[in-house]
Amino acid sequence: MSNVRLRRLAADYDKLKEYVRLHPRVSLLQVSGDPPEKFQLQYVIRSVRMQNQEIVPIQNHTVEISLPRNYPRTPPQCRMLTPVFHPNIAPHAICVGDHWSAGESLQSIIIRIGEILAYQSYNIKSPLNGEAARWAEEHCQQFPLDRVSLLPEEEPPSTSVKSPPQTTTTPQTRSAPREYTILVCPNCEARYRLPKNFDKKKVRCKQCEEIIDLSGA
């Protein structure tokens, strides 16, 4: 195995561990290889499957991702280990896109699979599952099935709005109270207290996991 491939595999694994640490809906079940070349991940995302000729909701999914010998020149091979009903998923493969470049990260593939499971992303023009494509076309007004963001954003620093700002007092000096602003999640209306000099562009709601864009705040 070339040093270039070894470095790429090691870097992908480090980024994957950091991603699942930050995202509450994705977990790493097992890996194979040193550095790893095969991964099993669990997604907790609302989706659907076909059971006894009926469409039923499902929330837990297991995905296998294998990195072939020519990776990253060739794309990862992705397949479901649990059933799901989606136009772009067949028992042998997940269609994560027709275009792949060596510069694309493994993390981007993991994010894309989550978006597919949530029906945030689907293609009914060239499906792997024609029956699912027909169903999706008839029920498109119901999508996405899950609005969770798959982006690995940090959480807000505080969930409490009741406690007063902290101050530090010594016999000689008293520091100025820290200034805060109240952030309300537009999805579930959870309230957060953010420092006025908070410099992140996006945060994740701890209640519903919605990504909140702060760029226009």
Rank of each mutant, 00 (worst) to 15 (best):
N3D: 12
A10E: 14
D12I: 07
Y13P: 04
Y13S: 06
K17Q: 15
E18A: 15
L22I: 15
L22G: 03
H23N: 09
H23E: 00
L28N: 09
L29V: 13
S32F: 01
K38L: 09
L41V: 06
Y43Q: 07
R46T: 03
R46A: 08
S47R: 03
Q53V: 06
Q53L: 13
E54L: 10
I55V: 15
I55W: 05
V56E: 03
H61K: 02
H61R: 04
H61S: 04
P68A: 13
N70Y: 11
R73L: 05
T74G: 07
T74S: 08
P75Q: 08
P76S: 00
C78I: 15
M80R: 06
L81E: 07
L81G: 02
T82H: 02
N88W: 05
I94L: 12
W100F: 01
W100R: 07
S101C: 11
A102N: 07
G103T: 11
E104S: 06
S108N: 11
R112D: 06
I113R: 00
G114L: 03
I116E: 05
I116G: 02
A118H: 05
S121Q: 12
S121I: 12
I124R: 08
A132F: 04
W135D: 08
W135I: 03
A136C: 08
E138G: 09
C140E: 15
R147S: 14
S158I: 00
V161M: 06
V161D: 00
K162N: 14
Q166K: 14
Q166T: 14
T168P: 00
T170I: 10
T170K: 09
Q172E: 14
T173W: 15
P177H: 05
R178L: 12
R178V: 15
E179N: 00
T181C: 10
I182Q: 11
C185I: 00
R191T: 13
L194D: 01
N197R: 14
F198K: 02
K200H: 13
K202M: 10
V203A: 00
I211R: 10
I212N: 02
